[in-house]
């Protein structure tokens, strides 16, 4: 019983972390309809950026925040390229876009291997390696930090999308671009900006990734399943849903890990994804 309670609490913390690494995808795939399978690769890129700044003595969270402007520009550039070469040419943009982002994944992975090698990397900070004792439980501080940041990220993004003019235009853009033009907003600029924001948030989430555990260049493959599972489970584009879906995935993985062993854990995300697509394709909070 204690074991199960431990699993649930740990799953809750990890789940919020899963939400944080997924919010960028929730914007790019959920709201903009861009098949952004390179999202986890950008996450790992953010983790390595954090690693480099950390070696120069920066705090990892601060490093993640400092990476955001550069990631914003990266996102804008990638979207611009995707738009000019694929999306603008119409109908089968989805499938060809998938091939494009698959290519981006390989470029990022190979680039990271060439620069950093295949060894695992980690960061140092006062809160890494310590834990907080709550009753009989010991909660790792690095997970608590990631948990807090996850809340800040999802709530911040959710407020931005619902309270600002640009945010609302981002929510509307995939629904009807012509109508958005009639509101006086340029759909391509809105999407470009939104993709920039999604990528900037992913850069910061990358810092959380390397705070939570060591990172190697191909760790993104584990996160393709997890991030897409969270976004689909949440209901495309729902930020509050992302938090709930992250927690569901976190707790499920944690319980499976405890009861069935580590080898089953990776199956959880795809399992949940398939079940969700089968019984409620619009997701928990889908409109």
């Amino acid at each position: 019983m204690d074991l199960l309670l431990d699993a649930i609490v740990l799953g809750l913390l990890v789940g919020c972390f899963y939400a944080a690494v997924s919010v960028g995808l929730s914007v790019a795939f959920g709201l903009l309809d861009v098949p952004h399978i390179a999202h986890p690769a950008f996450l790992v890129l953010g983790a390595y950026g954090t690693y480099m700044l950390n070696r120069m003595g920066w705090d990892p969270i601060l490093a993640g925040v400092a990476l955001m402007p550069a990631f914003m520009l990266l996102g804008i550039a990638v979207y611009r390229f995707y738009y000019e070469t694929f999306e603008r040419r119409g109908s089968d943009a989805g499938l060809r876009g998938l091939a494009f982002f698959f290519g981006v994944v390989f470029i990022v992975e190979v680039g990271l291997v060439m620069v950093f090698g295949v060894d695992q990397r980690l960061v140092e900070a006062p809160y890494i390696g310590k834990s907080l004792a709550v009753g009989d439980m010991r909660l790792p501080l690095r997970l608590l930090v990631a948990f807090a940041m996850a809340l800040v990220l999802t709530i911040g993004l959710s407020l931005y999308l619902s309270k600002t003019f640009t945010g609302r235009a981002i929510k509307a853009v995939a629904q009807d671009e012509t109508a958005l033009r009639l509101m006086g907003a340029n759909p391509v600029r809105i999407k470009q900006w939104a993709f920039g924001i999604a990528t900037a948030v992913t850069g910061l989430a990358g810092a959380l990734l390397i705070i939570v555990g060591p990172v190697e260049p191909t760790i993104d493959r584990v996160y393709i399943g997890r991030t897409f599972c969270v976004v689909v489970l949440a209901g495309l584009g729902s930020m509050s849903g992302t938090l709930v879906a992250g927690i569901i995935l976190g707790i499920s993985e944690s319980i499976v890990l405890t009861l069935l062993g580590a080898s089953w854990a990776p199956a959880v995300s795809f399992g949940l994804l398939l079940v969700m697509l089968g019984i409620r394709p619009q997701g928990l909070f889908g409109r």
Binding site: F165, A169, K171, Q175, D176, A179, L182, M183, G184, A185
Partner: peptide, 17 residues
């Protein structure tokens, strides 16, 4: 050409873009 998956209020606010 409304935004069907946005609320009435959100549609109106987009009108004031």
């Amino acid at each position: 050409r409304l935004f069907p998956r946005l609320t009435v209020e959100e549609n109106l606010l987009l009108g004031a873009f």
